[in-house]
Amino acid sequence: MISVFGSANMDLVAYVSQAPKRGETVTGREFRTVPGGKGANQAIAAARAGTPVSFLGAVGDDGFGTEMRATLAEAGVDVERLRRVPGPSGIAHIVVDDAGGNSIIVVPGANGTVTGLTDEDRAVIAASQALLLQLELPMEAVVAAARAGRAADVPVILTPAPAQPLPDELLDAVTVLVPNEHEAAAITGVTDPDAAADALLKRVPEVLITLGSEGALYASRSGERLREPAVRVKAVDTTAAGDTFVGAFAVARAQGRAPAECLRFASAAAALSVQREGASTSMPTRAEIEDFLA
Rank of each mutant, 00 (worst) to 15 (best):
E261A: 12
S54D: 00
R203N: 10
D172H: 14
T239C: 09
T25V: 11
L170S: 14
M68P: 06
A130M: 00
A268N: 09
S128P: 04
A294I: 00
N41G: 09
A146G: 12
S222P: 01
E214V: 10
E140H: 06
A14N: 12
F5A: 05
L200S: 00
A148M: 11
M68Y: 06
I105C: 13
G23V: 06
L226M: 13
A75Y: 02
S3C: 15
E277R: 12
A70V: 02
P108K: 15
P229T: 05
V178P: 08
L82D: 11
N9L: 10
T281E: 13
E74L: 15
G76P: 06
A230R: 05
A92Q: 08
G149L: 10
D198M: 12
S220L: 06
I289M: 02
A130C: 05
R122C: 02
V176W: 14
N111C: 11
E206N: 03
A279R: 04
T118K: 03
S282E: 04
A126M: 05
E80C: 06
A58R: 02
P229S: 00
A58L: 07
L272Y: 03
E181V: 15
S273K: 09
E261Q: 09
A254K: 01
D97F: 04
T281I: 12
M283A: 03
A161M: 11
M1E: 00
R83L: 10
R48D: 12
G256V: 10
Y15C: 14
L82S: 12
T239Y: 01
N111I: 01
M139S: 07
V26Q: 01
A279P: 03
P20L: 09
A195Y: 07
A110C: 10
G109L: 06
L170H: 13
